[in-house]
Computed example of a mutant assay.
Amino acid sequence: MKPRRKTQAEAYRKGISKGEIPVLSRAITLAESTLPEHKKLAQEVITWCLPRSGKSIRVGITGIPGVGKSSFIESLGLYLARECGKKIAVLAIDPTSSETGGSVLGDKLRMQELSRHENVYIRPSPSAGSLGGVSKKTSDAVILCEAAGFDTIIIETVGVGQSEITCHSMVDFFMLLMITGAGDDIQGIKKGIIERADAVLITKADGRNKKKAELMKQEMEEALRFHKPPESGWVPKSYACSSVTGYGIKEIWQCVEEYEKLCRESGYFMEKRKKQAKYRLHEALAQNLEDSFYENALIKKTLGEVEREVMEGKTDPYTGAANLLDLYFEKLRLPPSSEEK
């Protein structure tokens, strides 16, 4: 009797459980695919991985372009891998052009030393225009990486703004990186980001800029005291750091560990993750409904006409939307079953 051939799902499960990076990479690519057959297989693999995930600390990092996110992640990652024996997955979300669909996946180039470490996995991923520049598939990638044995997940986002709520909803600890002289408005101070930060880091605190960075750190400490205390009971901290000299890196990770200890002991850590899972459920429902609406053949046929009527002032946007939704749900309505007759 010939031995049974392994199914694709079994091959993925075996490779991920062994921490095989090529298999992990293929599984994440599968989860990012929009092909129906890939979606089905990806969901089967992720469902298997789910109970084997959740054992990592998830850290989100955001800041304006040029603040030094990639350099900071490399410095922090090398410290964690070399000094703390951590196994790190960096999910670096790359901006995708809304016009060309292109994506500059350059994070491995910017983190060359870190990417060569045997206990580090860097996965650049196009954001595909999703809210906050964080790919809607990032949460799947987190589950897959955790099931593969990574105990520290770092999610780097593009830019800052209200959209970074998406990243905040995926992580345990949220860092905002800032630089001296860039202006509060530009760096997101008045856009609600700082209220969500568990730590504010002033980067490039080296050379002549170190004194300015230390001064800004003190100013941020004062500013953080005026914000409403978070539900976790944690008091957000401010640090000055340098990716060049390593200044402040150890202290920043000690801050993350202190936060994790406090929140695990209070029960907030797991409660927050439950709320995040609920948030992603509703996010997925909204996305799937939107996809179903725009992929509907009748909507595709009618949408252009309604758009023209709205642009010409013949129909207001709200009536146009209501009519399209009525058309969509009418098309979905099934004939009554024999039990209902």
Score class of each variant (00 low, 15 high):
Leu30Tyr: 03
Leu30Pro: 00
Ala31Gln: 04
Ser33Met: 04
Leu35His: 14
Pro36Asn: 02
Pro36Gln: 01
Pro36Ala: 02
Ala42Gly: 01
Gln43Ser: 09
Arg52Glu: 14
Gly54Pro: 06
Gly54Ile: 08
Gly54Phe: 05
Lys55Gly: 15
Ser56Arg: 10
Arg58Tyr: 11
Arg58Asn: 12
Gly60Ser: 10
Thr62Lys: 07
Gly63Cys: 12
Pro65Gly: 02
Ser70Ala: 09
Ser70Leu: 07
Ser71Arg: 07
Gly77Lys: 09
Ala81Gly: 00
Ala81Trp: 01
Cys84Trp: 02
Cys84Leu: 13
Lys86Glu: 06
Ile88Gln: 00
Val90Trp: 08
Pro95Gly: 07
Thr96Gln: 15
Gly101Ile: 11
Ser103Gly: 01
Leu105Glu: 13
Asp107Trp: 06
Glu113Ile: 08
Arg116Leu: 15
Glu118Cys: 07
Asn119Thr: 13
Asn119Met: 08
Val120Ile: 15
Pro124Ile: 06
Pro124Val: 04
Ala128Ile: 08
Ala128Ser: 15
Gly129Thr: 10
Leu131Asn: 13
Gly132Trp: 13
Gly133Leu: 09
Val134His: 12
Ser135Gln: 08
Lys137Ile: 13
Lys137Met: 11
Thr138Met: 07
Val142Trp: 06
Ala148Phe: 03
Ala148Cys: 05
Thr152Tyr: 07
Ile154Glu: 04
Glu156His: 09
Thr157Ile: 02
Thr157Glu: 01
Val158Leu: 00
Val158Gln: 02
Gly159Ala: 11
Val160Asp: 07
Val160Ala: 12
Ser163Cys: 00
Glu164Gln: 11
Glu164Asn: 03
Cys167Asn: 13
